[in-house]
Design a protein around this nucleic acid. Structure first.
Lengths: 137, 137
DNA sequence: ATATGTGCAAATGCTTTGCAACGCC
DNA sequence: GGCGTTGCAAAGCATTTGCACATAT
């Protein structure tokens, strides 16, 4: 079954100290920079395992890259994700759900499922603010 | 500017005779099988051009592949897609847009973009109906 | 002890790109 | 004739996989 390896523990730890959506490579890089010695393939493999066991949230960015983060909420929810830093806000939208369901029903569709992700620039990275303020000149 | 090449015309024609979402490679294959001689790269390039000029709808499958089809509506809209046959219904949801925008604004996000796709079973493929009527055994 | 997990590097699959030839305008 | 377009093959990326080695249990 599932063994308890240093790498897996390190990955879970990294994920727990981090609540933005990140790509496998970003996560790997971060772990490396924190002194962990982990292979990229291992990160991919573990992320996959964790995701399919429902312990992680996965979302596919507009560019087709898979982004991961630990779940915050159990139930159904959506994400507002910063395109630059990955900062994420979860939100519920029962009205949206209801409206979508209604539309689908009107067309005779059943067994519904949907994806709704919002991408944008968070306050730190908004365009009016992007003149290079993140650094300390 | 934009030139009028045989390949581009063939692509537009192929797209116009087809209303499911398809990958670049599927479209290329179809064109080939219809006797068109077109390079795969050309298909990719033209799909990209057309998509960014808003003449095509693009959607990224869960596997990260880009799927294209011609637009039915000009403006922003969403899709209700049958998981079995790919049958697609476009719909508008101004209230959803407004609600999402509001939520994003509350969190200070700007330059918004979002993906909203609804998947389900169309009337032909609903579960109560799925006993295998599509085939001829 | 032994099945699982890991690391590396090679392989995969989709997509993009460099560059010479091609063909609209 | 010139410049956008094309085609091919090579390059790029994110991700997966084969295989020998390491290691939890």
């Amino acid at each position: 079954m599932q063994r308890n390896t240093r790498q897996r523990a390190a990955l879970l730890d990294a994920l727990s100290r981090q609540d933005d959506f990140r790509s496998a490579q970003q996560i790997h890089e971060q772990m490396r920079s924190e002194g962990e010695t982990v292979g990229l393939a291992t990160v991919y493999r573990n992320l996959q395992t964790l995701a399919s066991s429902g312990r992680l949230d996965v979302l596919v960015s507009a560019e087709g890259e898979s982004l991961y983060r630990q779940c915050e909420q159990e139930g159904h929810h959506h994400h507002l994700v910063c395109r630059v830093c990955g900062r994420t806000v979860e939100f519920l939208a029962p009205k949206l759900e209801a409206a979508m369901t209604a539309i689908a029903r009107e067309h005779g569709f059943t067994d519904l499922d949907h994806t709704l992700e919002v991408f944008g620039l968070c306050p730190e990275h908004s365009e009016s603010n992007e003149s290079g303020q993140a650094e300390t000149p």
